[in-house]
C-alpha cells in the first residue's frame, strides 16, 4: 500500500504529547520525515524514540512557540535536517482554567494568547517562506470546539482558539494562490494528558464520555486521521476550511 505522505517533510509543534504526538507517529508510518517540536524535553525524548522506531527520518527540537527566536530556530532546524518543509502542524497549545471574565488574571490571558494564537502566528510566519521556496505546502492548525462555541471554563482559551480559526481563513486567502494550503481542525474533547489534567478529576473525562452521543471522547488518533487527510495530497482542493472532529457532540439536541 502506498504511503500517503511519502517524501514529505513535516514539522509538528506540540509534537511530544497528545494530538501532536499522534500526528507525529501517524506521519512517520505514512512515509513522512518528521521534525518534532515541543518545549517539554522529557516527553520530546520519549516521542522521538517512538518515531525513530518507525523511521530513521525523525528528529526533535526544543521550542517554545511563543518565543520568536526559538520559532525561527525550529523551522531552520527542520530545513537543515530534511532540506525542505511541506507540512506544518500547529498543535502546541495551553489551557489554563479561568474564572468568569471580570476575575480573569491578566497574566493568564497573556499566557494562553502568547502560545495559542501569537505562537501559532509566529510558526506560520516562519514556515511559509520555507514552504513557498519548495513550491508549496500544507498548514494544519489545531483549534478547538471551544473556538466555535461558548466555553465557560476558560474564556481566554476559547478566544485564542477562535482566533486560530480566523487566522486560518486569512492565511488561506493570502497564500492558497501561492501553493500553501491552510486548514484548521476543531476537535471536541479528546483524551490527551492536557484534557485529563484539566478535567481536574479522573472522573471528569468519564462523565463527558457518558454524555457524548458516541459514548466516548475522542482519541488523539481520531484527530491524527483528519490531520493526515489535510496534510496529504488527497486534500489538494481543500484550503481555508475548518474541519470539525467532535464525534457529533455539537449536534446533540439541547435538552429542552
Amino acid at each position: 500500500m502506498a504511503e500517503r505522505l511519502a517524501g514529505k517533510v513535516a514539522l509538528v509543534t506540540g509534537g511530544a504529547s497528545g494530538i501532536g504526538r499522534a500526528a507525529v507517529l501517524r506521519f512517520a508510518r505514512e512515509g513522512a520525515k518528521v521534525m518534532i517540536a515541543d518545549r517539554n524535553v522529557t516527553a520530546l525524548k520519549e516521542t522521538l524514540a517512538e518515531a525513530l522506531a518507525i523511521t530513521p527520518d525523525a528528529a526533535s527540537v526544543q521550542a517554545d512557540v511563543s518565543k520568536t527566536p526559538q520559532v525561527q530556530a525550529m523551522v531552520d532546524a527542520a530545513v537543515a535536517r530534511f532540506h525542505r518543509l511541506d507540512v506544518l502542524v500547529n498543535a502546541a497549545g495551553v489551557l489554563v482554567l479561568a474564572p468568569p471574565l471580570a476575575e480573569i488574571d491578566e497574566r493568564d490571558w497573556d499566557l494562553m494568547m502568547n502560545t495559542n494564537l501569537r505562537g501559532l502566528f509566529l510558526c506560520c510566519k516562519a514556515a511559509i517562506p520555507a514552504m513557498i521556496k519548495g513550491g508549496g505546502g500544507s498548514i494544519i492548525n489545531i483549534s478547538s470546539m471551544a473556538g466555535l462555541a461558548a466555553y465557560a471554563r476558560s474564556l481566554p482559551y476559547a478566544v485564542s482558539k477562535a482566533g486560530v480559526i480566523h487566522l486560518t481563513l486569512g492565511a488561506a486567502s493570502q497564500y492558497t494562490s501561492k501553493g500553501v494550503r491552510v486548514n484548521c481542525i476543531a476537535p471536541g474533547t479528546v483524551d490527551t494528558p492536557q484534557a485529563r489534567g484539566s478535567s481536574q478529576s479522573a472522573k471528569g473525562l468519564e462523565e463527558i464520555a457518558a454524555a457524548h452521543p458516541m459514548g466516548r471522547v475522542g482519541s488523539p488518533d481520531d484527530i491524527a486521521n483528519a490531520i493526515l487527510y489535510l496534510a496529504s495530497d488527497e486534500s489538494a482542493y481543500v484550503s481555508g476550511s475548518t474541519v470539525i472532529v467532535d464525534g457529533g457532540g455539537r449536534t446533540l439536541p439541547p435538552k429542552i
Binding site: N225, A226, I244, V245, G247, R250
Partner: peptide, 8 residues
Amino acid sequence: EASFVSGA
C-alpha cells in the same frame, strides 16, 4: 478513519 466525525 473518520470514526469520531459526525454532524460535520
